[in-house]
Every structure is written in C-alpha cells, then in structure tokens.
Write a protein that binds this DNA or RNA. Structure first.
Lengths: 123, 123
DNA sequence: TCCATAGTTCTAGGATAATAGAATTATGTG
DNA sequence: CACATAATTCTATTATCCTAGAACTATGGA
C-alpha cells in the first residue's frame, strides 16, 4: 500500500459514522450486512448511509454484492491488513523495544489462528 | 480507546502531509526530530508544518519537547498501538480464518522483540 | 542590547466535505 | 402492469478544512 491509498482509507475512517459502519462490518465478518440493516442498527438515514458506504467503497475498505432487493456490504480485510501494515511498518526503525506493546496486541489476536499447526508456524 | 478519539486520530492521519510527518516520526523513534528538520526533509513551509503538527498533537499522535531553539517532535507509540487495536479488535468476531494475514503481519514485527525470552513469552 | 534563528499564531481566501430532502433506479410480488 | 420495498443519486445549503502570507514569540550568541 502506498501513501495515497493509505490517506484515502484513513480519511474515510476518520469520520465517526463511517468508522462505526466499518467496525460493524468487521465484526459481521464475511457474511456482511444489508445496507438497510446497517441503517437500522446505527440509526442512520438511508441517503447519508449510502453516501458514506460509497466513500468507504472508493477507499477499498468495503465490497458489496446484490442479493434480491438488498445490497450486502462487507469489510475488505485485505485493505485493513495492508493499512495496519503501512502504519506499523517502520515501527522498529530505530528502537526495537517500542514494538513490544504492538506485539502483545498481535499475539492476542493469534488466539483465532485457524489451526494449531498454523499457530505454531506463526510463532 | 473509544470511537471519538479513534476518529480524531484517523482523520488526523487521513491527510497526505500529516501521514508523511507521522511515518517519519515513527521511523525516527524516541529520538524524535526537530520541526525544522521535518520541514526540510518533507519540503514543507514552516507554518503549514506547524499547523499539521498541532493537529497530530491534539490527536495524541505526537509529543514534543523544547531543546534550545528547536522543538523536538516524536511519535506517540501508545496511541498508535491503541488505534491499531481499536481497528483490528473485532476482526475475529465471526470468522477466525480472516485474521491470519494480520497474524502474519504481526509475527513479522516480532523479529524486533527485545529479548528471546520475551519473544517466547509473547508466543 | 541587537540580531539571527526556530517555530508558532493570526488571518482570509478558496476548496472540500457533510447533511438531508426529493426524485430516481432496481427488484420482487400480487 | 401496478405497487411496495431497498438503495442510490441529485441537489443545495451549511460547515469545516487547507493553505500560505504576514506578524509575533522565544531562544541563543556577539
């Protein structure tokens, strides 16, 4: 990921409503959520929601598919991962000890590694 | 970290110049960099840089200290870590397998864990 | 004290983003 | 086809952000 698309993603997420949408979609996982369901859960009017979904989409943070009358949105995890990588990429540049909180954070998320063998591999 | 401060940090970083400043400070580590040095390296005019440093500072992404005539800025790694945690926090909500790229990313950054014993502890 | 250096604050303009009402498009059902 | 539902697009108003020139503050040295 390069600076321009990172900026695009970060400014898309730098908005309380869009951050709430994105986090909701992250927790919803690959199943995704219909636009109407997002609007209902977050109490947003449809046109504002649509505009914000469009901004998230242009930042490659979400994808969507139609299912009948509904349009299902889901978080794009690859962009999220790339964005985190871009932010923490040079963290260790000068001082290794700074990384340890980040490592702890990451090791916590390893509890959801797919298989024990993979978890071993990662460590 | 809560939504409001995460939004503040993300919108602060959602600006090409400020993102460049922050990443420069992240790579500079705890030593930090003088404002003038940042301006010189990134080719920014002093007043714009100062305004942007102020925005990063209000978002708790940087700290500063005076040294003689210079003011030294450094990245606030605890905010950076909290922000990443806020973003990836619910990543595993519904589908563990999604986390693996994130885990890989994090395990790469473990190469800079302070000591072998600590690395063992983290895993 | 006088001057140079380092940064910040003030200011005004132009540009960009946010919001919500109204109209429009797309899909499914009777 | 007519109608209801689901979302989007259009539009205009308002608010916010960005930028850089100019003035100001703080520090160190002659």
């Amino acid at each position: 990921m390069e600076s321009k698309s990172a900026t695009l993603s970060l400014s898309a997420l730098g908005h309380e409503g869009r951050l709430a949408i994105f986090r909701l979609l992250v927790s919803a996982g690959p199943t995704g959520l219909a636009a109407g369901e997002i609007a209902r859960r977050l109490g947003m009017v449809p046109n504002s929601l649509s505009a914000n979904l469009n901004i998230l989409s242009r930042a490659n943070l979400t994808t969507s598919r139609r299912e009948g009358r509904s349009i299902i949105y889901q978080a794009d995890f690859s962009t999220m991962t790339a964005l985190v990588g871009f932010l923490v990429g040079d963290c260790c540049g000068g001082a290794p000890e700074i990384c340890s909180p980040l490592n702890q954070l990451l090791s916590q998320s390893q509890q959801c590694a797919p298989t024990p063998s993979r978890q071993k591999e990662l460590c």
